Each structure stands twice: as C-alpha cells, then as structure tokens.
Simulated assay, not measured.
Amino acid sequence: MPDTPPVFRFAPSPNGLLHLGHALSAVLNHDMARAAGGHFLLRIEDIDQTRCRSEFETAILEDLAWLGLHWQEPVRRQSEHLDAYAKALARLNDLGVVYPSALTRGEIKAAVAAVEVAGRTWPRDPDGSPVYPGRERTYSAGERATLLSSGKAYAWRLDMAKALSLMGDDRLTWTENGSGPEGETGTVVADPAAWGDVILSRSDAPSSYHLSVVVDDALQGITHIVRGRDLYHATSVHRLLQRLLGLPEPLYHHHRLILGADGRKLSKSNQDTGIAAFRADGRTPAELRALIV
C-alpha cells in the first residue's frame, strides 16, 4: 500500500490581524507540505467568542491568499466542533484525571503571596505563571457536587499527578525536527508536571487550547506540527493528553520567532508588523518572504 501523505496545518485565532511571525509559520507549513508531497490545512481556532471576530477571519484568509498559499477545503472552525472537545473531556473525567476548580485570580494571587511573604518560592510554569494551588483536587464527591451546583463559575483542570500516574514507568517523549529554545532536537523528554494542573475547559470557553489542539490534530490527521518556539514547552502537555486519549503522536518542528524592535515576540497589537500593513505599503509577497524565511 502507498504511504499516507504527510499533513501539515496552520491554525491561527481570529482575534487580531496576522503579523510577520504568523506569516513565517504559515509559509513554512505550506512549503514543507508541498516539498513532502503532502497536504496543507487551515484551521481557525475561534473557541474564544469574546475575542474572535468574523472580520479578523476574513482578513486572515485574504492575507494568506495574498501570500500565495493554497489550502484544502473545508476550513475547520473550532466553534463548529464543540462536541468533539466535550467528548474528550468526558473521557478524561471517566479516567478520573480532571476536577472542577473555582479559585479566582485574586484568590490564586493571595495564596501565592502568602507563601512568598513567608520566604518560600511558589512554583511557576514555563510561561512564568504561578502553578494552580489545586485546592479542589482533594474534594470529596459531596464537596465536588456542591461546587458544581453552587452557581459559581468553574473550570475543569487536569489532575497532573493522577494523569502522570497512569503513565506508569513509560517515558513521555516527542520527536523534535526543529529546535527548542536551547537548541534541543531529536528525542525530547516531556515534562508536563512543570505546568501543574492546566485548564482544559472554562465556563466561558468550552475547551482550552491544550485540549482542543490535540483533538483537532488527531481528527484532521495532522502528521507534522510546525509552530513557533513559544509553544515548545506546551508540547509536554500535548503529549500527555495524546497518551491519555489514545491519540496518534505527530512529529514536531518548532521554529524561530520573529522579534520586534523591543526584543519581544510580535503581537497582534503591533499593526506595523502586520501582513496587511505590508500589503498597504505596496510590498509584494516575494519581498515579505525574503524578509522572513
């Protein structure tokens, strides 16, 4: 039987205009798919309906078409597949590795401050945010039921310790064909514990990035994930969720980030680095490609 062609994807969120960093990721995915005789897919990650807007999605499609990129139809929109994420969350609940959490940002901040005032260090995840205290992790069935019926806003979090215990002695790894922040490549040992009890679903968003991205990649048959190094460490969480849910393991390629004049990664709020700004200036797709690749 012939080998299955590789499948790449570009998955922007329509919460702003695309910038040069997005252009690099989109072009790399598109060109690597073409070079490998594979498929290039476009996914719109629009779960956060408070920030995502249809005009931004329209702008994304226009920018990518202007760059000369071609993708397979139909475009997958996460907002049209909420049932898939709900089923994945239910599966994790059946495994006993999720719990409802209701601490507010203020309560988390107070818990962290109390520990640090005492001279101790509160653990932080790879992005620098305090790890969730996990107060509700040990709730009894009755306490959990009370929380769920209280009317308070709550999120579903992954019980990291329980999830890792299901892995037994198996080592979680991924194959890195690009490079991490410290030049890591080849077989990389995952460290999901560094993230603590990550959010999988919130009251205002039916799925988190972590959960939806692994579900979507599996359902779309994505074999190669090419994305920026800012998501390198998140791969540890994704590999754990893939194992828990019995999903296939893609190959990963994390690429360099394009930085702004201040040395930070680009933001959608920086309109001067947007693809639309280059179009408005009369620049050509070839000029933009020469700038980023």
Rank of each mutant, 00 (worst) to 15 (best):
D127V: 10
A234D: 10
R227W: 07
S13V: 06
D169A: 15
G282N: 12
D127Y: 10
A276C: 01
G106E: 14
L147V: 11
F40R: 00
L244N: 07
P2R: 07
M1S: 14
R120S: 14
T146Q: 15
F10Q: 02
K268A: 00
A261Q: 06
A26W: 03
H238W: 03
G119K: 04
I222H: 05
E287N: 00
A153R: 11
I108V: 15
L231Q: 09
E57S: 08
R9Q: 03
A280G: 08
R202M: 09
L164M: 15
V214C: 00
G228T: 02
D170G: 10
I44D: 01
Q72M: 13
G37R: 02
R53K: 14
A84M: 08
A35I: 02
A276K: 08
V27L: 06
T50C: 14
L64D: 02
G142D: 15
A36M: 01
T104M: 12
F278Y: 08
R43P: 04
E45P: 08
H70I: 14
H255W: 09
F10R: 04
T175Q: 09
F56K: 02
Y132V: 09
A155D: 11
G37C: 05
R279C: 01
P192A: 07
D204P: 11
G246F: 07
G221Q: 01
K268P: 01
R53W: 12
S165K: 14
V214H: 03
P6F: 06
V198D: 00
L82A: 05
D125H: 12
A102G: 11
A155I: 10
